[in-house]
Simulated assay, not measured.
Amino acid sequence: MKKLWTLVTVIGLSFILAAQPAAAAGFPDVPKTNRFHDEINFLVGKNIISGYTTGKFQPKKDVTRGEAAIMVGRMLDLNGTKRATKFKDVGKNYGASGYIASAADRKIINGYPDGTFRPNEKISRGDMAMILERSFGIMAGSYGRFSDVGHHMNASTAIFEMAGAHIVTGYPDGTFRPTANVTREQFSVFLARGLSTEFKQRTLNKDGYAYDLTKTYTYAQPKGELQVAYKKVTIKPAEVTFHGYLWEFKDTGDGSVYHLDQRETKDGLYMVHPLSEAEKELIYPVKLNTKWQPGMDFHERVTITGINKTVKTPYKTFTKAVEATNTNGNKSYFVKGIGRVKTVDKSGKMISELKSIQ
Results as ranks from 00 to 15, higher is better:
202 R>A: 14
202 R>E: 15
203 T>W: 04
204 L>M: 15
208 G>C: 08
209 Y>T: 09
210 A>G: 11
211 Y>P: 00
212 D>H: 13
213 L>G: 03
215 K>T: 05
216 T>W: 09
218 T>S: 06
220 A>K: 14
222 P>A: 04
222 P>S: 12
226 L>R: 10
227 Q>F: 03
229 A>W: 00
230 Y>K: 10
231 K>I: 08
232 K>Q: 11
232 K>A: 06
233 V>W: 06
235 I>S: 10
236 K>Y: 02
238 A>C: 09
239 E>P: 05
240 V>P: 06
242 F>K: 14
244 G>K: 11
246 L>S: 09
247 W>K: 03
247 W>N: 06
248 E>R: 12
249 F>K: 11
251 D>W: 10
251 D>Y: 14
252 T>K: 01
254 D>A: 06
257 V>G: 06
258 Y>R: 14
260 L>K: 14
261 D>L: 11
261 D>W: 13
265 T>V: 02
265 T>D: 12
265 T>M: 00
270 Y>K: 00
273 H>M: 13
273 H>F: 09
275 L>H: 12
276 S>M: 08
278 A>L: 05
279 E>Y: 14
279 E>N: 06
280 K>F: 09
281 E>N: 01
281 E>T: 02
285 P>H: 04
295 G>Y: 06
296 M>N: 08
298 F>R: 08
300 E>L: 03
300 E>P: 09
303 T>C: 03
304 I>P: 10
